[in-house]
């Protein structure tokens, strides 16, 4: 039996099965671990992560590109439960925040 590996170069194809989550959080060193840990413990792959402070730096915005998966509703609820998460928005695949970054991720 052969196993088909996902074609990492085919970003368009990957993006179609992805959802973009916009997570607003309190800006402190533990927040990323809290959010990402929810995905890793469920063996739920995060395809892309972007995080920057917003406003006066008290808060950050985390952009996550994740696979469209039946567990996604549950994931969003779990993220919303985190004490340092202020809000979660879901966006369709191919949200420009990641699309614009593609040039930084070209395979050499």
């Amino acid at each position: 039996m052969t196993t088909q590996l996902p074609e990492s170069g085919d970003s368009k194809n990957a993006a179609e099965k992805c959802t973009v989550l916009e997570v607003t959080v309190n800006n402190h060193p533990g927040v990323m671990s809290h959010v990402c840990g929810l995905f890793s413990r469920r063996a739920f792959n995060v395809e892309g992560i972007l995080c920057m402070p917003i406003g006066d730096g008290d808060r950050s915005r985390i952009w996550l590109m994740v696979n469209e998966d039946e567990r996604l509703d549950q994931m969003v609820k779990q993220i919303e439960k985190l004490e340092d998460v202020l809000g979660v928005n879901r966006h369709a695949a191919g949200h420009e925040v990641f699309a614009r970054l593609e040039e930084f991720f070209r395979v050499q």
Binding site: P29, G30, S33, H34, G37, R41, L82, E83
Partner: peptide, 14 residues
């Protein structure tokens, strides 16, 4: 301790 307690607490602080 902070890192190890993330998934087993409701919330944690360092």
């Amino acid at each position: 301790t902070y890192g190890m307690s993330i998934p087993i607490t409701k919330h944690n602080f360092l």
